[in-house]
Structures are given as C-alpha cells and as structure tokens.
C-alpha cells in the first residue's frame, strides 16, 4: 500500500561561520499512512519544525527525498499548514483570509467560495464574523480562523506546527477536541509538531520522538493501540501513556540534560 508521506534519507545542515555547519537533521526515514494523525514530539531545537518545513515544501533538504501523495494517486496532493501564530493577513477580513487560500483546485470543487467560507467559520464557532478584521478577534479566535483556513481547502495532508502552544490551556484543550472532530470530517493525514507529551498522546495515532542535535528519530510508537478513540482528556491512561513518551525523550542518546 502506498503512503501519504514517504521520507528517505533526509538530511539538512545549516552553514555556520568559519566553514563549519550545524546538522539539523540526519538520515530521516519515515512512512506515514493515509489518514493517520502523527505527532512529531521533541524538545526545542531538535529539528522537528525543520522536518515539517521540508515535508511541506517550505524548506529544502540537502539530501534525501520526500514524496507526498493524495489518496487518489492520479491527483496532486493538496496540503495545508497551521503555524504557531495564526498568520492571518491583517488587511483582509476573516472571510477574505479564508477565501485567499481557496481556488478551483482546492476546497471550491464546484461550490461557491462564499459557502465554503461560511461553512468552515460556522464549524469553528465563528459564524457571522465574516466581515471582521483579525485585530477585532482574540488570539484564540484568530487561531480558529487559521483552523478554518486550513480545513477549507480540504487538504489531503495537514501540517501543524505547535498551533495551540501560544494559547491558554483551557482554550488549547477545547481546540484539541475540536481539531479531532474536524480531522474526522476531512479525513486528512495530519503531521502535528509539539513539545508537549500529553498533547501528543491525546491527539495522535502514532508518536514519533525526535531528539537533537543532529535531529534524529529515536522512538516511534503506536498510541492507537494503547488508548482507543474517542478519547477523554481526563482519562488516566492518557497520562500513563504520555509517560512512555517522556521516558523515550529522557533516555534518548546524546540528549543534553535539561
């Protein structure tokens, strides 16, 4: 069976002064199946965001290959991205920010762009806020618009880089639950970067633990087997399972003591 994402031997190094270089990623191999929710978990600076940017095409690897596929192999895969900040365009209204990423190939698919925008604004709980500018929304609401924007193109693959880490925990946990609901609806493959083991355990089918430097994959395990969905944020098994991730992080070779 073909995978949604296939990574072979990806290496990335940044030049430093004096001809030296810092190796951010070394020999990354990774397969991710269609529709999986995968978390890349690791400490700051372990190269997880670099890997995400290479997967999404924002950055280029020095060596190795990345292949992305849609479920229907005859189509080019559509990918969306959510950043740590909303990255809305402040000069466009909420509706125009979402419409900005929609075109005939993505999301529209014969439907009126306006309908698509309204539908997703409604789904993230911001119905009727179409004509507001981003500055009129709270940080959490702005991030909801960013969710709507990412969903509106119905991505085959959705890249997420710590999208909830700047929010208060109450808002973040609510948005995690909503994200799982929306993920079920659009059936996308998700690659979610986080440094929070509990967040990874709550969200993921599979957790890939990374450590730096150089950034390598040190553990890769199945959460789905440990805790079936739907999951409850208060489930004590969640906490226990997250300890597995914490141990993997602690015992990783070459990891500097925090």
């Amino acid at each position: 069976m073909s995978h949604a994402i296939e990574v072979r031997g990806v290496t990335k190094a940044y030049p430093l002064s004096g001809g030296r270089e810092r190796v951010a990623l070394e020999g990354i191999d990774l397969d991710i199946g269609h529709g999986a929710f995968v978390c890349l978990l690791g400490p700051s600076g372990c190269g997880k965001t670099t890997l995400l940017n290479i997967l999404s095409g924002l950055d280029k690897a020095n060596a190795g290959t990345v292949v992305l596929r849609a479920r229907d192999a005859t189509l080019a895969p559509v990918s969306g991205y959510m950043f740590q900040e909303s990255r809305l365009l402040p000069w466009l209204t909420v509706a125009d920010n979402i419409a900005f990423v929609i075109d005939r190939r993505t999301g529209g698919k014969g439907r009126d762009t306006q309908d698509v925008v309204s539908y997703w604004l409604d789904r993230v709980g911001l119905a009727g806020r179409d004509n507001d500018y981003p500055r009129q929304l709270s940080v959490g609401q702005q991030q909801r618009v960013a969710v709507a924007r990412a969903m509106a193109i119905r991505p085959d693959i959705l890249f997420m880089d710590e999208p909830f880490s700047a929010l208060d925990e109450l808002t973040a946990s609510k948005m995690r639950e909503e994200l799982l609901e929306l993920w079920g609806e659009i059936n996308a493959t998700v690659v979610f970067v986080t440094h929070n083991p509990l967040e990874a355990t709550f969200l993921a089918d599979r957790i890939i633990v990374m450590t730096g430097s150089p950034g390598v994959i040190t553990a890769d395990y199945d959460v789905q087997a440990l805790i079936p969905r739907p999951r409850d944020g208060d489930d004590p098994r969640l906490w226990e399972a997250s300890r597995v991730a914490v141990r993997a992080l602690r015992t990783a070779p070459g990891l500097a003591p925090a």
């Binding site: 969306g80 991205y81 990255r87 365009l89 000069w91 900005f100 990423v101």
Partner: peptide, 24 residues
C-alpha cells in the same frame, strides 16, 4: 517573511503573493 511563508505553504501564485501579501 512569515506571511509570505504562509502564502507559499498554501501554494499561492506569484501574483497572489505580490497583490495580497507584499503590496499591502
């Protein structure tokens, strides 16, 4: 540059990036 990265991540065209992201 972060907003330009966003536009690239959503595969926006050169002219969309210029008119909607850079010019404003």
């Amino acid at each position: 540059g972060k907003l330009i990265d966003m536009a690239h991540a959503f595969r926006r065209s050169r002219s969309q990036v210029w008119w909607k992201v850079v010019l404003p």
